[in-house]
């Protein structure tokens, strides 16, 4: 069942993709060293969450989702229009696609948040579609 309520417009944020941050992510993930201005592709995800104007916990809570119950990242789909580049600041635009409350074998019921976040710099760079599952106590009314 899809919750039929108007979703709020989410504030736009910014993400500073510095060369230092890229170097650090490459070291932590075992990536080859950067050879040009292209950043590690995980920044489509890191910049999306890291550039939100508020932490994902606060965003979730503001939507009525129970972050403290232990959300589970289920799936992400990333589309790259052009590679993200280091030493640029990107505009981060989140949008709620939908929130669904469904029966769950694991939790009884669960809220499914489908959130899309785009990174652009006047022109589009990346879009990520996130599916995050939050345990919920009862069926939607």
């Amino acid at each position: 069942m899809t919750t039929t309520r108007p979703y709020p417009t989410l504030a736009v944020g910014r993400f500073d993709l510095s060369g230092t941050r890229d170097d650090h992510v490459r070291r932590m993930s075992g990536a080859p060293a950067r050879t040009d201005a292209r950043a590690h592709p995980i920044f489509a995800f890191v910049g999306a969450l890291g550039g939100l104007p508020l932490p994902i916990k606060d965003l979730s809570t503001s939507l009525g989702l129970d972050f403290d119950a232990g959300p589970v990242l289920a799936r992400c789909r990333i589309a790259v229009a052009r590679p993200l580049l280091v030493d640029r600041v990107y505009t981060v635009t989140p949008q709620i696609d939908r929130i669904e409350r469904k029966p769950s074998r694991r939790y009884g019921h669960a809220d499914h948040l489908h959130l899309e976040i785009a990174l652009d710099d006047d022109t589009p760079f990346t879009t990520i579609a996130l599916h995050i599952i939050f345990p919920a106590e009862e069926a939607a009314t």
């Binding site: 993930s29 080859p32 890191v46």
Partner: peptide, 13 residues
């Protein structure tokens, strides 16, 4: 996201 980064880094290598 760190787990996904490991996969991406392996592909890059």
């Amino acid at each position: 996201p760190a787990n996904l980064a490991y996969l991406m880094s392996a592909l890059m290598a």
